[in-house]
Design a protein around this nucleic acid. Structure first.
Lengths: 264, 264
DNA sequence: CATTCTGTTCTATTATTTGGAACTTAATTT
DNA sequence: AAATTAAGTTCCAAATAATAGAACAGAATG
């Protein structure tokens, strides 16, 4: 894992909080609970310092330490995130439209938002019921291999896309996963079409269509998608859904203009 | 809101992180986005100090600030929590047992854990039944009006329960919500029975049965519950499920003893 | 146009964090 | 079982970051 290397990559790691957040990242990204020494090896802090930093995080419930002295992330994060999610304005505004789209297509509908070079999934409507679970919500995926990600990139100014792509490490998830060049080419296509496909680029057997959503000043950039198994979601079927999904995205954008702008 | 008062109530608010977490709490507990001045009124920091603190939180993605300068909680929390949830050992161990219980009862099954004087819901298996309850993973509820909460208290030493109850503010959610005295009395009952009922004490029309789960050193205390609408979950029905739910709790406890204890 | 309200920036002072070593305690080896 | 090594914790002078308060700037209000 290159978690410790994040220090060098853009991320703020100065200031008391910055250093603590790096630690929190290290622990939450680990495959399982970490012992003190494991963390020490990844952090470039002296032992005494690290020990106090971890103690502070534990005291605040951001980390937990078990009987064996192993650290894992704390449940306070769940509480904070649960509130953050429940009150998220974008999600609240989009919710009814996502539900409508789910009713229309019968497939899984996702709402995602661009954060750095990842898409964070904010909501998901599956089958008959809204799933209020973190099973997928809160998950992040790379921009370059998700429908929502590519849709989001397509409405950013070209220079911002170029800058973002330049800093990206492309991991080849499937045979169809993009590289920098093919990604930039497809984004031009998406600009014209107004919607993006994921042709099994992230996971074999999974396809999706997505359309972008954005606020006027681009402070919020994301998208909606309809996702499902390739055997059911043929490219023809996906193409049929392109228009309705663009319409849903448009409706959400409009609702945001009204809903978020009363004080503007 | 008494968010700022938390300073006086036990919670650590010294140290750089402690102060920042108080702010994060204030913002995430608010009903909506807060302006700088709103936060200033609840915090006892000078303006300049508060300004920098908020900037740091925004820089780390723990808070977000919109075009109108209003603060709300940041999406980074979702990402962190999603990982925390996915890798939580207690949840992973309990998962198959919860699913079995759901299959058996057909009603909603919850897994909760005691944190301070609240129960945090860690997982939920929902039936196909049409009646939807408002419950969400990561949500917290007071110990005194939930089945899992009362079950959890019943396995704590009496002096710890007394201390916890003494510091509790009892909000009367329904006509059946406990007060300190009735709660302590019922906990004695639950100790004998091995399971707890929620007789519409939190929400009118919602009942549940719960059984406690705990680790040997009480580092983890929580419970499972089966919850549903009162018209379907008569007290007779709930009583029938008391045995199976105690069995599920027992199985999870056993699985934890093995699953969490290889290094012990 | 003056005035208040709101948010931002600056700097000497103060408090916290740091780094390094010393010190326990647990695990491993001989 | 003693000796050795590793793992984790505590301590304190020095370095660094946070604080308080005032001064500044911009927007909203009368």
């Amino acid at each position: 894992m290159s978690a410790a290397k994040e220090n060098e990559l853009g991320r703020r790691d100065t200031g008391t909080l910055g250093k603590l957040m790096v630690l929190l990242d290290v622990v939450t990204h680990a495959d399982g609970p970490m012992r003190f020494t494991d963390i020490l090896a990844l952090s470039d802090q002296p032992r005494g310092t690290l020990h106090r930093q971890l103690s502070h995080l534990v005291e605040e419930g951001l980390l937990e330490i078990d009987a064996d002295g192993r650290y894992s992330s704390g449940l306070r994060l769940l509480d904070l995130a649960s509130r953050s999610w429940a009150r998220n304005e974008f999600r609240l505004i989009a919710e009814p439209h996502l539900k409508d789209l789910q009713d229309l297509t019968g497939e899984t509908v996702h709402l995602g938002v661009l954060r750095g070079s990842s898409i964070i999934y904010l909501d998901k409507f599956e089958g008959q019921q809204p799933v209020r679970m973190y099973s997928q919500i809160g998950n992040t995926s790379p921009v370059y291999c998700t429908g929502v990600g590519k849709a989001a990139l397509s409405i950013l100014p070209r220079e911002r896309v170029a800058a973002l792509v330049a800093d990206l490490a492309f991991h080849q998830f499937t045979a169809n996963t993009h590289t920098a060049d093919t990604l930039l080419a497809e984004i031009e296509e998406i600009r014209k079409q107004g919607h993006a496909f994921d042709r099994e680029e992230h996971e074999v057997g999974i396809r999706c269509v997505a359309a972008p959503i954005w606020s006027e000043n681009l402070s919020l950039v994301g998208g909606v998608s309809v996702t499902g198994p390739a055997y059911r979601l043929t490219m023809e079927r996906l193409s049929e859904w392109a228009a309705p999904i663009r319409k849903t995205a448009e409706q959400i954008r409009e609702a945001m203009r009204i809903g978020l702008g009363p004080r503007r």
